[in-house]
Computed example of a mutant assay.
Amino acid sequence: MSGRDPGRLRERVTIETPVRTADGAGGASVGWSALATVRAEVISFKGTTLAATEREEAREPYRVVIRYRDDVTAEMRLRWRGRVLDISGRHDPDGHGRWLAIECEARP
């Protein structure tokens, strides 16, 4: 991945961070705030179906590659083409701080 062509970053994704707001009853509600909109390569993998209690839930896995950032965490999410992608992991594929590969699943 060290030779990745920046021209492959054809998509725009928005990195969103959770914002917790006290609900006045000792709990909190979670909203989302845009951290940044960045260029990305979005790679779709074949969707899988997982059994979830009494119903089946379709999961659509993606890998999103962006220029390296050290502020992306698994508690954040991505928004791409109106879809919400939950982050399940992230890594620096070549170890040189040039690219960040983010493993995600689209919400059903």
Results as ranks from 00 to 15, higher is better:
Met1Ser: 15
Met1Thr: 12
Ser2Cys: 06
Arg4Phe: 15
Pro6Trp: 09
Gly7Asn: 15
Arg8Phe: 14
Arg10Glu: 11
Arg10Tyr: 02
Val13Gly: 03
Val13Met: 08
Thr14Asp: 08
Thr14Met: 07
Thr14Tyr: 03
Ile15Asn: 00
Ile15Ser: 04
Glu16Asn: 03
Glu16Arg: 10
Glu16Tyr: 05
Thr17Val: 15
Val19Tyr: 04
Thr21His: 07
Ala22Gly: 11
Ala22Ser: 13
Asp23Ser: 06
Asp23Thr: 05
Asp23Glu: 07
Gly24Ile: 10
Ala25Ile: 05
Gly26Tyr: 08
Gly26Met: 09
Gly26Leu: 10
Ala28His: 11
Ala28Asn: 03
Ser29Phe: 12
Ser29Leu: 11
Ser29Tyr: 08
Val30Thr: 15
Trp32Gly: 02
Ser33Trp: 01
Ser33Val: 08
Leu35Cys: 04
Ala36Cys: 09
Thr37Glu: 14
Val38Gly: 00
Arg39Asp: 11
Glu41Leu: 15
Glu41Lys: 13
Val42Asn: 02
Ser44His: 07
Lys46Trp: 01
Lys46Tyr: 01
Gly47Asn: 07
Gly47His: 03
Thr48Trp: 01
Leu50Ala: 13
Leu50Glu: 13
Ala51Lys: 06
Ala51Glu: 04
Ala51Pro: 05
Ala51Val: 07
Ala51His: 01
Ala52Leu: 09
Thr53Ile: 09
Glu54His: 15
Glu54Asn: 14
Glu54Trp: 10
Glu54Ile: 10
Glu56Arg: 14
Ala58Leu: 13
Arg59Ser: 02
Arg59Asp: 00
Glu60Trp: 13
Pro61Ile: 06
Pro61Glu: 05
Pro61Asn: 10
Tyr62Trp: 13
Val64Trp: 00
Val64Ile: 10
Val65Cys: 07
Val65Ile: 15
Ile66Pro: 00
Ile66Val: 15
Arg67Phe: 06
Tyr68Glu: 00
Asp70Cys: 01
Asp71Gln: 04
Val72Glu: 01
Val72Tyr: 02
Ala74Arg: 14
Glu75Tyr: 14
Glu75Pro: 03
Glu75His: 14
Glu75Phe: 11
Met76Lys: 08
Met76Val: 06
Leu78Lys: 03
Leu78His: 08
Leu78Asn: 05
Leu78Arg: 05
Arg79Pro: 00
Trp80Ile: 09
Trp80Met: 10
Arg81Cys: 02
Gly82Leu: 10
Gly82Phe: 09
Arg83Met: 10
Arg83Glu: 14
Arg83Gly: 04
Val84Cys: 05
Asp86Ile: 06
Ile87Pro: 01
Ile87Lys: 03
Ser88Tyr: 09
Ser88Pro: 01
Ser88Cys: 05
Arg90Ile: 13
His91Gln: 08
His91Thr: 07
His91Ala: 12
His91Gly: 12
Pro93Ser: 12
Asp94Val: 09
Asp94Phe: 09
Gly95Met: 04
His96Thr: 12
Arg98Glu: 12
Arg98Ser: 13
Trp99Glu: 01
Leu100Val: 02
Leu100Pro: 01
Leu100Gln: 05
Ala101Ser: 13
Ala101Cys: 03
Ala101His: 07
Ile102Leu: 13
Ile102Tyr: 02
Ile102Pro: 00
Glu103Phe: 02
Glu103Tyr: 03
Cys104Gln: 03
Cys104Ile: 09
Cys104His: 00
Cys104Val: 05
Glu105Pro: 00
Glu105Ile: 11
Arg107Gly: 04
Arg107Ala: 08
